[in-house]
Design a protein around this nucleic acid. Structure first.
Lengths: 198, 198
DNA sequence: GCCGACTCTGCGGATATCCACAATAGCCGC
DNA sequence: GCGGCTATTGTGGATATCCGCAGAGTCGGC
């Protein structure tokens, strides 16, 4: 299981949460400030975030914004003692996964964190697939990409040849290169790859 | 533009909101209770919902639940004077579009309602397309559907013939019937239709 | 200047797909 | 029982796709 990152400037709370989660076999890493986590964050940082709102220095909300700007898509659960409806609504509408007020129910929080960790793992798996796809797309030449787009659009080779002003034979060559590079055997498989089908 | 449905048991508020929205050219219909709206709701009821939480009889939250259970996908904006973080969080996580506390900013609320109405219109358009697709799928026979699935999976006719234990010729016949009924000319177009591509 | 890529093209043959014509058979409703 | 729908299969020919073999022109790097 991947890690739960706890960001809270109160060491006592970090420790208490650390205890709680470790006792449930959830790996934890603690951060004393938003700045510290923001600094350490990398695009491949996995897991989920448990974020206190009110902290010395950068607030949890601002950290969330900065992470979003950096392209972070990790699930974020806010934890706060002084909840406020507009803040909660704003956070959720920006994509936070949850917003929990202290005092919280231990079991409930653990469940939500576990769900979030699972969601993150699932999403990373999907993205890994997409990355492989993107890498293969990157090996295509311009012409191959053009031909591929027309193939996926359902055009026949002769039509593609017409539209690109080249011979059918050339289209066939590019087409077969595309199939080879994308590791598919038929146009339908290619279309499914690109339109993101199961 | 489609209608904003206001559900609030306080006639004064309904009137005030009605005034506000009508002055911005947003068509409004008012409902004095959750029960009244639930009764009148039909799957083709369009627009968006502005829902008071605390009301005599059924609460706004319960109305939301009942509507969800009935398959209602209209955008819902909650309006409440006595906000509460867990309630707001719960409503948003169930799919409410927004959760606004009184007193609210008129312009902001109008903007959010207009956005919601636009989102509803867009979604209905998408669903209309899906409905046409579903209707065409419904005209297919069992065999045709089986063949279609294998075609969309990228199998060649000979392989399909093998898997279904029938002759290639028969597969070709079913295949062309599928193309005709689904109004496409190639397997790729069919795949794009079913996997929901642009 | 040579080598490697990308692009382009032609020929010919093996496969696959598309289609019209033609026919058999079971099932269901009128 | 007849007509219509579904499913099945065949023949034969027009198109389309797949692929190996062969060659040629451009461009950029070593």
């Amino acid at each position: 299981m991947t890690t739960l990152h706890i960001v809270d400037d109160d060491e006592a709370i970090r420790d208490a949460l650390g205890w709680l989660f470790q006792s449930r076999n959830v790996p934890v890493s603690g951060w004393p400030s938003a700045e510290a986590f923001l600094e350490a964050w990398r695009p491949d940082t996995a897991g989920c975030l448990l974020l206190d709102i009110r902290m010395e220095g950068m607030s949890g909300l601002e950290l969330f914004d900065r992470l979003l700007a950096k392209g972070c898509r990790m699930p974020v659960i806010f934890l706060t003692g002084h909840g406020d409806v507009p803040i909660a609504v704003g956070a959720l509408k920006k994509g936070a996964r949850d917003f929990v007020e202290k005092p919280f129910n231990d079991n409930e929080l653990v469940d939500r964190v576990i769900d979030a960790l699972a969601a993150d793992a699932e999403q990373r798996e999907r993205e890994a697939g997409q990355a492989g796809l993107a890498a293969r797309l990157g090996t295509l030449t311009q012409r191959e990409r053009q031909v591929m787009e027309l193939v996926v659009a359902g055009r026949l080779n002769k039509v593609i040849a017409d539209e690109l002003g080249i011979s059918m034979r050339t289209v066939e060559v590019h087409r077969s290169h595309v199939f080879e590079k994308m590791r598919v055997k038929t146009a339908v498989e290619l279309a499914r790859l690109l339109t993101g089908a199961s």
